[in-house]
Amino acid sequence: MNQPILSAKAVRKTFGKFVALDNVTFDLQPKQRRALIGPNGAGKSTFIGCVAGQIPGAEGQILFKGEDVTKLQPSALAKRGISRTFQISRTFLHMTVFENMMSAFIMARGSWPSLSTRVFSDLEDEVHAMLGNVGMDTRANETVENISLGDRKRLEFGMALAADPDLLLLDEPTAGMSIKERHHLMDMVVELVESTGKTLLFVEHDIDVVFRVAEVVTVMVRGSVFVEGTPKEIAANEEVQKVYLGEGDH
């Protein structure tokens, strides 16, 4: 086996007395597509937040490409190749779709400390190409607050890709979308992740989407890793059905 791209060792995160993550140990192989599932409150989003740096103060160790990144700031993690989207999509609401993507590019490339609009012209083609990749190029001039939540999710996904990350973390990428939209978005995600050789870790409630996209599924329950396996194994696992699927969480 290769060296895992992401490796969590006994990660623990508490909020006061509440233990959100307890002894999470987790290896992610390069170029793998991994789903993180589990009932509400299992710690999935917390884990993503700890890996991407938004939630500081985790105990244990998180290694990215073999380097200890447990204590790093989100911006430093982004520069090392970890990119993410948020459960409730985060975009720049009062800017156009184009400006959002341009902003993502100048931030990722570190070309923002400039007063010259040359920076914009140099990146324009790439910005349009990325907007095209996520199917947003025709809406480039629309202000983000006027586009649908699904479109914002697509835009944010593109903005995360703009950093050309090695590891892509998607926190409920399809939440709030119709079934058709979900499959459309995730097909696009798979295609882009495959073609650029990225590793994907995503939190998802929709089991159809999970089984369609993931190569390996990790089930979390009450802050710990409950079981890991291929979608087939997980689907056949009675314990999993009891704690997760049976609950009718989705």
Binding site: Q54, R84, F92, S103, W112
Partner: peptide
């Protein structure tokens, strides 16, 4: 300034600092 790359970054942080941070900006 406002309409430069620097200004775009300032506006971005103003509108959503978490997104900006996750995109590699301090």
């Amino acid at each position: 300034v406002i309409h430069s790359p620097l200004g775009l970054a300032i506006r971005s942080v103003g509108q959503d600092r978490y997104r900006a941070e996750a995109s590699g900006l301090n």
